[in-house]
């Protein structure tokens, strides 16, 4: 089993690499297109359907600074695949270099149990859980902007802060059930 390790390679100057893992490849590509347009640093975007990553490309793969699991809530498979991929990550990644991005969270078709399961997963791994409106270009741009913010910190480009510190502030917490409006 080949683990993806956060510190096995040296970083390049002014460069940050992000790995987008999504089994269904809905959002991945459009997100990547926005991400590479960043001008302040060089952003390498790597796409994968699931982990582990193939061994043969291991040499020319840069150091991955942030791993993003994109989960489409309307499909069960998406969640299962992300969950299965998690074990191919070195524990070092969970010190602030992993985040979860959820799409279709507002859809009526999503069972609440699945949403809760994703929340539980993110909370148990102390990772942030972001929501994205993947169907509009504004939504994708906003999601990319937020990912860039996290990526810059985890790549060590932002002074005065570290990935671990940021993830301590942003990690997902389990909310106790919020009451729906009652008519009393």
């Amino acid at each position: 089993m080949s683990l993806l390790k956060p510190f096995s390679k040296l970083p390049n100057i002014n460069t940050a690499s992000i790995l987008l893992v999504e089994s269904e490849e809905h959002l991945q590509q459009s997100l990547a297109d926005v991400l590479v347009e960043e001008s302040s640093i060089t952003v390498n975007v790597r796409l994968a359907k699931s982990l582990p990553l193939p061994k043969e490309n291991d040499k020319d793969r840069p150091r991955i600074d942030l791993v993003v699991f994109i989960i489409n809530l309307s499909s069960e498979q998406s969640f299962i695949s992300a969950e299965a991929s998690l074990k191919y990550l070195d524990p070092g990644y969970f010190l602030g270099k992993v985040c979860f991005m959820v799409t279709s969270a507002r859809s009526a078709a999503v069972p609440t149990e699945r949403m809760d399961a994703v929340r539980k997963l993110a909370a148990s791994l102390h990772s942030p859980l972001l929501f994205a409106e993947h169907q509009t270009s504004e939504g994708v741009a906003a999601a990319a902007e937020r990912l860039l913010g996290i990526l810059k910190v985890s790549a060590g480009v932002v002074p005065m802060t570290t990935a671990l510190y940021l993830s301590n502030l942003t990690r997902c917490t389990l909310p106790t059930d919020i009451e729906q409006p009652s008519f009393d």
Binding site: S74, S104, A105, R106, S107, A108, A109, V110, E133, Q135, T136, P181, F183
Partner: peptide, 27 residues
């Protein structure tokens, strides 16, 4: 109460849990 009921319904059905999963064609 009635206004709140209407509003709550509008938010819940049409915005928060719109059937199409948030495509904002009626943004």
């Amino acid at each position: 109460l009635r206004l709140n009921f209407w509003l709550g319904h509008a938010f819940q059905e049409e915005f928060l849990f719109s059937g199409d999963g948030g495509a904002c064609q009626n943004s």
